[in-house]
Write a protein that binds this DNA or RNA. Structure first.
Lengths: 363, 363
DNA sequence: CAACTTTTGGCAACCGCTTGCCACATGCTT
DNA sequence: AAGCATGTGGCAAGCGGTTGCCAAAAGTTG
């Protein structure tokens, strides 16, 4: 019970009434400095009604400056913090936003989370973090269960279908990240451009046989990457291979590396850095040199991409900023300002960070 | 406003004409399948009072099995999800736990968060993640502001003083991680033993001049590590150096590396892996070979320690599990079972993971 | 069959805060 | 001085649940 109030027990015998002070007549619930002060305590201390306190705190110009001062002092003295629960109940807003990620384990999402956390904190909104474990069911479930406890949602790399997404966004404010959607605002990273940059880079190094190492089939960005990869590589007259899908974890890297080598490709563009780093490890273990024998390009530029061995050439994007942008878009949606409609799409720029895992094609 | 209810639209008077008995006539609020169903909707559908619904859901054996079934069916049909807000307001519990970490940026805490997240989810509790930015003020502030919105707290590597910690833990259930405390349950990793293992390892490699690379002075584990390091290294008759403090980020690694080299030590034990990896990068840039010229031992075995260059010898501990244990201890504190008092201290075992950043002393 | 114990369900009072509406002051106009 | 717009503050009805208490219903017992 540690937390719950001790039910009924109006303080008959008050512990340290001593000091008295302002609220003279019968300070019933106050007195014993035990349970956190409520708006009523503040009201009593300031000698006003609770409604006035509420207003003084929410819309300061709705009350007389003098009263407001008194109330503010009272609140400060009592160290009053309004209960977000109660506030939410009556106002209908929770002042919380849920961030759904497919896998907290993945460093990529940590960047996102960092971004959302920052921006949300700045806005005074609580972040509810949820790991959906790459499952659309869990995602839907969370969306449903939390509809009353969050004002809005940020879906990172959502696994929902277009229909599901549309359905959900009809009833709950949300913004998707790295998952195109016509029904909800979206922030995504400029995948096509990134893949083209990467292929350009490989082409200039003389590679002709390239391989795409695929991630989760339900991932929209995976599909996008492959599509652009195939188009552009074909256009360049390259020999195109594709392997996968693989779970985007370093541990899947071994299988991916072996498969990649078997295709005979001299360069791989990999779904993400986790997988790419895993491949690097495996290749090194097998004595296959990177980039002398095979070039590897990752994606996301996660923590570690700069100090792995060899440092990974990868597609970088301001992920943390993407998180911040997502929050801004969501908040804009929640508090429609007088101005125009809020932005429906934000595309984060990408660039290829060239490190040491890419080099001239062998021969 | 996407979220807030549409305010006023109470069907004029008639609110509580009550006389009618079972509310078959005029299903006022229901009808339009718009806003999420409340307990009242369920009650109406099942033909009982809201209190009965509440009980049926909370303590199933308090109501007649048949009624319960009816209620459950109604709830299912309406797709009812109780509002955690309202529930919290009246019951005094929020069903949420706040996890405070000094820096979400730090991969070390990712592991913790992952652990807490898992365990909390399993218990059906919401996780509130807070970044305190290494500041004790922010920590206190969060603790205060959230006292009404969380049932308990998990403080990772708290920066609070003993007194503050004691004070806070008087009023709020909490468990600390990696921060010893007599006032609150604690889970920590077995630092002393780890440092000793590390020194043993270095000694066996012939090192005599060792250096401790310090982290944040307010970090309890930093203090512990240094203390044990100094004691044990001295006992072994080694020449002991100490540099720092450094911010525990890879970017501080450069300065740390340079300073370490200047001490003439042949081996360093570093506050954490982040710093150690940063040092590795700098040393490599300066052409100082690891481990040929200098050995480096990190701590925490974070993501990346295994694939940096060279792979880092480091102190490993089941961090994620530590997060889970912390949650268990907190939950035990919140719901005191009939049984004995809950555990007040959990020490996670450590072991030295030897990779390639340590080797024989030069000469 | 009466007396008594259990079950079972409803009533109503909150939990802490917000907000529509109303009333009373005040200050300006005319 | 009367009329009116405006500024302030209180009242009270919720928001969606939980829970103590009570009464009716059902089950036991002698």
């Amino acid at each position: 019970m540690a937390v719950g109030p001790a039910s009924k027990e109006r303080p008959t015998a008050m512990a340290d009434s001593g000091t008295t002070g302002t609220a003279r007549d019968a300070p019933k619930r106050d007195a014993g400095r035990d349970r956190p002060p409520t708006i009523r305590d503040v009201a009593e201390l300031a000698g006003v009604a609770t409604s006035t306190v509420s207003r003084a705190l929410a819309r300061p110009d709705r009350v007389n400056p003098r009263t407001r001062i008194r109330i503010e002092e009272a609140a400060a003295e009592l160290n009053y913090v309004p209960s977000s629960q109660a506030r939410g109940l009556s106002s209908g807003r929770t002042n919380a936003v849920a961030v759904l990620v497919p896998d907290i384990t993945n460093p990529f999402y940590f960047d996102i989370i960092r971004g959302t956390q920052h921006q949300l904190k700045a806005a005074g909104v609580t972040q509810l973090l949820v790991d959906t474990e790459e499952s659309s069911e869990m995602e839907l479930d969370a969306l449903h269960k939390m509809r009353k406890s969050a004002d809005g949602f940020i879906l990172a790399a959502s696994r929902l279908t277009d229909a599901q997404l549309a359905e959900v966004s009809r009833t709950q404010p949300l913004v998707t990240f790295n998952r195109a959607s016509t029904s909800a605002p979206t922030v995504m990273i400029d995948t096509p451009s990134a893949i083209i940059q990467a292929l350009e880079h490989l082409a200039s190094l003389g590679h002709h046989k390239v391989c795409y190492v695929a991630g989760p089939p339900t991932s929209w960005s995976n599909q996008m990457r492959w599509k652009v990869f195939e188009d552009d590589a074909t256009r360049r007259g390259m020999e195109v291979h594709r392997i996968g899908p693989y779970t985007p974890k370093t541990t899947s890297g071994a299988a991916a590396a072996d498969a990649a080598v078997r295709t005979g490709a001299t360069a791989c563009i990999v779904f993400n850095d986790l997988l790419a780093i895993g491949m690097l490890q495996r290749l090194q273990a097998r004595g296959i040199r990177v980039p002398a024998d095979i070039s590897i390009i990752g994606s996301d530029d996660i923590f570690g991409a700069d100090f792995c061995n060899p440092p990974l050439t990868t597609i970088s994007s301001p992920i943390e900023q993407a998180g911040r942008v997502a929050v801004s878009m969501l908040l804009a949606q929640l508090n429609p300002l007088s101005g125009s409609a809020s932005r429906q799409l934000a595309v984060m720029p990408t660039h290829l960070t060239i490190r040491d895992s890419t080099g001239p094609a062998p021969h």
